[in-house]
Every structure is written in C-alpha cells, then in structure tokens.
Design a protein around this nucleic acid. Sequence first.
DNA 1: CTAATTATGGTTTTTATTACTATAATTAGG
DNA 2: CCTAATTATAGTAATAAAAACCATAATTAG
Lengths: 248, 248
Amino acid sequence: MPGRAQRKATKSLSHPPLADFKVGVDNVIFSVDTDQNRLLVLLVMRQEEPFFGQWSLPGTLVRHGESLEDAAYRILAEKIRARNLYLEQLYTFGGPDRDPREAPDSYGDRYLSVSYFALVRYAEAELIADRVSGIAWYSLEQVPDLAFDHKQILEYGHRRLRNKLEYSPVAFEVLPELFTLSDLYQLYTTVLGENFSDYSNFRSRLLKLGFLEDTGVKVSRGAGRPASLYRFDAEAFAPYKDKPMVFI
Amino acid sequence: MPGRAQRKATKSLSHPPLADFKVGVDNVIFSVDTDQNRLLVLLVMRQEEPFFGQWSLPGTLVRHGESLEDAAYRILAEKIRARNLYLEQLYTFGGPDRDPREAPDSYGDRYLSVSYFALVRYAEAELIADRVSGIAWYSLEQVPDLAFDHKQILEYGHRRLRNKLEYSPVAFEVLPELFTLSDLYQLYTTVLGENFSDYSNFRSRLLKLGFLEDTGVKVSRGAGRPASLYRFDAEAFAPYKDKPMVFI
DNA sequence: CTAATTATGGTTTTTATTACTATAATTAGG
DNA sequence: CCTAATTATAGTAATAAAAACCATAATTAG
C-alpha cells in the first residue's frame, strides 16, 4: 500500500513528524427559558481527569466508525431527551497545548475538539442526570469557570447564535411550538440586546411576512390583554430561506 | 496520570474503542482575474498516493507542535507567494471512509480534514511550481474531478465566498489595491450572478457609504470614458463592521 | 369600579431602494 | 477630423421599507 509507505517515509525525512490526534466533539447547547427570559447553556460536571469536578461543555471522544456528527448526537442523547433538535457544526479548535493530556514537547497524542452548536426547547428538554448528577442549565451571565478552552468555545457559539438569529428562523427551535409575539420579541431582546426596532414595528414586520400562523387561541399571563398564540409555518417561510435579514 | 488511565480503561469497556486520527488541513484558495472576469481556485496535482496524479486542493497533514492555522499558512506559503492574504477556517470533514488510507473495518488511523478558506490577489500572487509543476489556477466552471471529497469542500468554500461577499468587505482582498467601480461590480456579478441592483444604483449606494476613496487617477480600458481608481478605506469602513448587508 | 398593564392595530414621517434619464469622456472606424 | 459606439458618471422621480409614534382593546391588581 503506497499510501502507508509514503506516510512512514515522511517521518524519517527532515521535517518534523506528523502529530497523532484524538478527536473530541464538544456541544454548545443553548435553550431559552421564556418565562424568565434567560438564555441558557447546558453544562456538565466532569467526572474524570483532567479538570475533574469542573464544569464543561458536554463532550466525548470520537469512536471507531463514528462520524463527527454521530458523536455530537450521541453525547446529546446521553444528556438530554429532547423532542426537537437543531444541530450544526461550529468550529474546530486544534492548537497544541489546548488539552493538558498532551505531554509537552513529546510526541504523544494531540487533542482536537470539533465543536457543535445545538438548540433545544427548554420545556420539552428533559435532562438525564446520571448517578453523580452533574448536569445543569446555566444562565449565560452566570457561567462558571469551564474546563479546557470551553469558555472560548462557548463564546464562539454565543456569537453564532446572535448571528443566526438575525437571518435564519432558529428562534423557533428554542421557542415552544406555540408562542406569543411577545415571547418572540423577548427572545430577540434577551439574546441580542435592546438595540433593534420597537415591539410594535417588530410585530407588524413579521406578521406581514406571513409565516407566523395565528392559532386564534389566547393566553393570559398576569395582567394585561391576553395574547394570541402563534405557530411558525416552515412552508410559508421557504421563499425567505436565502433572503438575508428578514428578522431584524 | 489519571487521564491516561481513564483513556486506556475506556478501550476495555463495552463501547467501541476510540479512533486515532491523522489531521489534514486543506485550503480552498480563491482569486479573481478581473481582466477576464473569472473566479479562480488554486489546485495542485497530487504527487503521491492515494489519488496520485489527480488534482486536489492544496493540503498537508498537521505536524507536531503545529496549530491548524499554522499548517494552513504553511501549505499556502509553499504554493504561493502572496502580498496580501485572507484566511479563515471553513469546515471540518471527518466522517469515516472519506480517505482510502483508512483500512475499512479495522482500527487503523482515521483521516480528518480541517478546511480553510483563503483569498489572494491574482496579480500579486506568484505560484511556486515545484519541479513536477502540478499547480494551477482553475476557473470555477472548469474544475476537473478532484481527489478525496475535495469537490464537496470546494463547494462549501464557494458558498462561503458568496455569503461573505454580501456582508463583509472580502471583495477588497481579491481585487487589486486600486480598482475601478466597474471592477468591483464585475466581481460581484461573476461571483453572485446578475441578480442584484443595476450598476448605477450599486455605485451610488457604495459611494454614499464613504469607505471608497477616490484617488482621482483615471484609467482607460478600451473604449469609453476613463474610470476613476478607488481604494478601500478600512478605517472608514469600521462603523459598518457589524452591520449586515452593506454591499447588496 | 378605577388604574395599571399588556396586546393589538394602526398612521405619519423619514429613509432607503429601485427604475430610469441625461450627460461626460473616451475609442473605433470611416 | 468627424460621427457613432462605448463606458463612466451624476442625478431625479417613483416606490417601498423602516422608524417613530399613537389610539384603543382586553385583561388583572387593588
């Protein structure tokens, strides 16, 4: 097999030898608690070294015969029972020295992390606590120190979330299936800050687009006039799929 | 070292053992020939197995102590002498069976590719032909069959280019430092197709934004009134950095 | 019963986009 | 050297979208 021969040969030539890698998958899983207007990220307590006892993004090492996406889904399924699910690749972090298991200056394994970005609905997502129970939703402002470079990965995921919110209908992946226009507006303000159109204009713009279906059902939440429950109509949205900026 | 112990232990448990990886970096390097309005991608002829003699994206395997980005820059520097350079990570392709060097159903190494997206200026980019001379710019419509899953990676890079063109000033990474508004418009039409505002409106919209500096120098290209040469003013652009869709 | 609160459905004003027109400065060709 | 074709530039008018603002409806709190 010439490929193998070639590779072995490389090691004996002038340039440094190739690195061997273990590949991990780490998930940034976001959700939103619409009742309390909190943007949440799922963290797990590490049960092994390194960083034993520290919070981290849920992750796993990739197994034989398993694709990266498979691994991402596997770790997700181990931590959470969700009815809906949005998942996409985020970024790959692979510098040397990002994992303390890499023996410095030696030719041992490197650890690379392919991160994934996921969204689930808070009310429908059931966390799977293992016996040691180290799993929890954290409000974005209260995230503690994280293992490895997971703080950086989280920050990257947060940026992606803010971007995607502006031009894709990911909001409906974290909102319950039926939601009020207020819920939707609150979601946008909690994630993006207050710096966009006021509620009234936001409403009329979105309603005019025609992919929000009014179910007619009213809900009363505390004081004030009851609000209509809406549903996202994916088919009606289709024409806007590749158009930029329909939400802001 | 508990981390290592943990890893070894894993292998003997019920779930399948972890995969070992070699990590490659593959670059999708775009350029634009403004004279002929061609969108170009850099391809190299493979000099080794697998896919010996086939065209491929320029790539390399990551070495010890080398970050992913380092590897991307290294391969770029080996193929091209460029004065300007734009580089960002694209996507990571890591499914099993994407590289024929992976022995099927065995526990040998997997091959993972972290792809990078690069832009250079055509006129200022000097290709470095090695003795076997397998390196060339290919017009996007004439790309031949590529090794591995490189066609897929290229397609992904092309999509990224189209997207970035709409909301970021990457156009000025592929245009020469001084360009006419016609050059800029042609670039947009060749990459994006004809489906956006006409030339006149494109002009006035961009000029009003104020980050295109008129040098006053005129160039005549064949018939017609001579055009002004413009320069991109990065400082003046700064306020638009996070604003969506200034170019379309 | 009244005030406070939230949702809703607008209008008006301002700004941006689109379609279109006119003119300027050059080259190509007789 | 003159005229037509060509390309660049500068604008205006019509249209559409965005932003600011306002009035009213339907509920709860007290």
